[in-house]
Computed example of a mutant assay.
Amino acid sequence: MTIATARRSDVEVRPVRTRRDWARFRRVPFLVYRDDPNWIPGDAADVGDVLVSPSAGTRSRITTRAFLAYRDGRPVGRVAAIHDHVFDRRYAASTVFFGYLEAVDDAAVTHALLDAVADWGRARGLTTVAGPMSPSLLWSAGTLVHGNDIPPLVGMPHNPAYYAEHLESWGLVGVKDFHSFFSEDPHTLVQTPRFARKYEMGKRWKARSSVIVRPMDPARFDEDIERVRVLYNTAFAGFWGFTPVDADEMRALADTMRPVLDPEIVLFAELDGQLVGFVMGIPDVNRAALGAVRSRFGLVRDLHTLLRWRGPGGARRRTHVRLDMMFVDPACPDRGVSALLIFELFARIHDRGYHSIEAAPVQTDGGWFRSVLASYPVDPTRTYRIYERVLTP
């Protein structure tokens, strides 16, 4: 397929083709965020693994095309157009997603990049543009529209506040919001009078339940990751935008997080030897990454971050935890598994010396979190939005 160079105003958009182009693609965020003290370099899903040299499994799931925006010969923005074949088959859709979007504060740049995505999608017969997905819900999704002025949560997107305005002025409309919710010392919080009834119910349920809650066993890492993947695909089948996760996808995600995981706060709920529930607490390594070098070489950044995380003084940075991937087998006969996992996680977080948690991404229109908010109504700390627009022929 031939992709022509696109122009909008004085902005020129070109497809990424050469090694030099890919180096420029990776450098764009350093331009966009050079004055943002909260930015942490690096993409959740690696550009090389997804866009430059994808595995056979990745190629079977998605087709991509990356673009760079130039002004006066200098890169000022980037984006990737993504055709997710699994998504289209599952939802009988015809969607081109945009991801890895970064652009300077000029709507003309963002619009030119989105024009390129739309043109690429039309050439493939696609009729809707949506995103951001980088490259999917499993990795990084949504534009941060509230909470841009604080350090990002580990594994979640971060972007300038002007992104939402640029996307909406191109004609994109928000179709789904996800949130994060912060709590200081949740173990103590659930023992307050506000939670007294739920806390007592949880203790009684635990006393009579046959469910066993255990931490992650590093010796069974590969086996447990596969069991989590199978349950994830069952539990999230009705989740907005869900697509089944392959073994290589889940393994890649697990390998990304493994260096910073605390096995004691990654919890498995088992009933008669079968996995029926899972919740993961992820120590917020971003507290260490914020002070690490902003090198363009990922290995240098990662090593310095791990040194700050594991080395002298690291304990004072290991205070915050992201609560992620809370799910339960819908066929499990024990209806108290969610409560068992949450109360156990809160207790372990407290005992391990962490001081706070932030649950993300959360949909407030369903699931266990809705009942929590009924007892403890709080405003979201951050809001992430996924946009969509129907393409004209």
Rank of each mutant, 00 (worst) to 15 (best):
S338D: 15
L101V: 14
G77H: 09
D84M: 09
R322E: 12
E168Q: 14
G171Y: 12
R78I: 11
S55I: 11
T192H: 02
V211H: 08
G125H: 06
G42H: 07
R318V: 07
D255N: 14
I386Y: 02
W22N: 06
Q191L: 03
P361F: 15
E388K: 14
A44F: 08
H166P: 04
G202T: 10
A23T: 14
H111Y: 08
V117Q: 04
I265L: 12
E270R: 10
D351F: 03
P157W: 10
D365W: 10
S136T: 13
A289V: 09
G311C: 05
V228E: 00
R208F: 08
R251Q: 13
G142E: 07
S209N: 08
T2E: 13
V211M: 07
A6N: 07
R20A: 15
L101G: 02
G131T: 09
G42S: 07
V16C: 11
L303T: 12
V16Q: 10
R61I: 11
G171K: 11
R197T: 14
S9V: 08
V285K: 00
I386R: 03
T18G: 10
D272C: 05
R34K: 12
P157T: 12
L275S: 02
A45D: 10
P54W: 12
V321S: 09
M326V: 15
V390L: 12
Y354T: 04
P151D: 01
R122C: 03
G202F: 08
E344G: 05
E264V: 06
L31S: 08
A359N: 03
T256R: 15
S209D: 06
T95H: 09
G311H: 06
F346L: 02
D119W: 02
P37S: 01
G77N: 09
D149K: 08
L275T: 01
A315G: 03
A164T: 13
